[in-house]
Design a protein around this nucleic acid. Sequence first.
DNA 1: GTGAAAGCGCTAACAT
DNA 2: ATGTTAGCGCTTTCAC
Lengths: 341, 341
Amino acid sequence: MTRQRPTIVDVAGRSGVSKSTVSNVIRGAANVSDTTRQRVLAAVDELGYRPNGLARQLVQQRTSTIGVVVGDLTNPIYSQLVKLLEQHALASGYTTMVSNTDGHPEREAARIEALLERRVAGIAMLQFSGGRSVIDELHDDGVAVTVISCLEERADCVTVDESKGLAISVRHLAELGHERLAYVTSPLIEEHTNRARHESFLRECKRAGCSETAVVTLDVEAVLAHDADATRELGRLLESSRGPTGFAAANDIVAIALIEAAERLGASVPERISVVGFDGITLGGLTRIALTTVAQPIERMAELGMTLLLDRIDGRTTSTSRQVLLEPELVVRATTAPPQG
Amino acid sequence: MTRQRPTIVDVAGRSGVSKSTVSNVIRGAANVSDTTRQRVLAAVDELGYRPNGLARQLVQQRTSTIGVVVGDLTNPIYSQLVKLLEQHALASGYTTMVSNTDGHPEREAARIEALLERRVAGIAMLQFSGGRSVIDELHDDGVAVTVISCLEERADCVTVDESKGLAISVRHLAELGHERLAYVTSPLIEEHTNRARHESFLRECKRAGCSETAVVTLDVEAVLAHDADATRELGRLLESSRGPTGFAAANDIVAIALIEAAERLGASVPERISVVGFDGITLGGLTRIALTTVAQPIERMAELGMTLLLDRIDGRTTSTSRQVLLEPELVVRATTAPPQG
DNA sequence: GTGAAAGCGCTAACAT
DNA sequence: ATGTTAGCGCTTTCAC
């Protein structure tokens, strides 16, 4: 199939110059007479020559590829982030290579290995699980890494202030008068992030004088597939008269799944229970959903994240790791209300 | 930063063998004694050697990278598809490189060019806009291409039967008793696909004896951002007593935006108007949305699409282009009902 | 302004 | 079973 592509030598032959001159022309280097340039360009055109990026990157000892490792591309917050990162990378002459890990640490390690074999210039990790070893290994390898949307002290990182994250949800629920709260999460949420958010939840519960009655773990896919098993745990919680009335979710997708599950069980939101999400995905703004949530400034996260990474790649930064903490913002819509009765 | 990485030569030196032997070991070739293998492996470990994929791919004249070109990664149907494609590619030893085009033909061309310079083994195009020239050029270059989720005769392609697509929506609306129908689309939907779906809409309207009163173009982002301008056109349509009561959308996201816009304008769904989507995104299954839609079998699309592409890459297929047509399936939920009064 | 030559890190015959 | 050799397509000194 793949007919032999013309190389720089073919172009050189056709235009009667040496290959270095051709190289000079296609790289837009100086020191090429106008007439030669024209002839070379003509030959390029006639032959349909296209530079071989592999060869170029091999000899230059640097690539223009940036790896992006993401837990779940299906979560709108991440697909949005990936899209923004690609735009920023492109604007600086880089191409991205996206790897989905589905939250599995082994898959994460494998995908990172693949990126490294391709000698990516740097890696942006959204929701990263591997724990210290991964980061350390990358550091040893001298690969630029930026972690986006979760806190990681050992690397450059831009994230929403995790300590404030869930605290804002809890405070909002407490101010509405809710006294018994639950934390809602999903198996897809990476361990590190989950722990941080849960701790933030517990801390603020204590401070606000609320009791934390439960941790609910929801299999989002199963809930959406109308699997009855997936809502059983929640069902028991809702039956109890001393059960929680306020639910703080680890992210918007979980929050939406919770609303779905609760309402299918006959507990309407916000009349019977209140729910607040985390992330600020666009769909939460739909009138039919109207999710109260703690929004992350994802445009800024993407922009700053890519800036940090590129600075590191280009050696503009040699300092130790830098953390950028952004402010989350409460967006009150219609899934929260004072508790009834 | 990037400290000089060890090469195959370093490993050879350290283990006291030639570099071809090292090469044999890491490629798992036969003809290596067990003792030598151990020594080489030990050296690999001590040095932290990692093969350079660029060099390997350059000399082998083939890469294990597959390009994926997508219009809007933010649309769940595509992020899902991309995720599935990545899984299938991975299972066959390939890595994917995703490019988002936001539907711009120029950006599409640029991204394809970048993929070709990286000498990707093949390209999977989801929602492709470039028209004939792009496909032809790729064909001339001898690059394997598979188009997924929209019809393209000049290339391998797997898609839902476009001619049936919107027809199913229209028939459903007609059977409920709707007589005046509208087609709803968005600027983000690629021209080709849009035309096919619109034609399918018109054809079936005629057959079912419905009148097509309008084409509504909705800027989804603007609607979700609660921009009043974005709903003006729809507002006029809904005011008229002879306006459409049944809306067939070009995809689910548009359908959801339409519901949002209509209900904000006071026209509730499905009491005042009925809406049917296209794609079958998971979120449509939420009780609060309950979108009636024409679902695509995306698992099969991803699987077949990747199979077609890999067959072509490996030269198992030399025939002319093959089209696979899959059956769309109507999923009736709660955004459609008989017209009132 | 242009060309010759030396690699980049690896694979794949071909010798030994 | 292991080593030698010749590239893959390009960039980049360094001469001319």
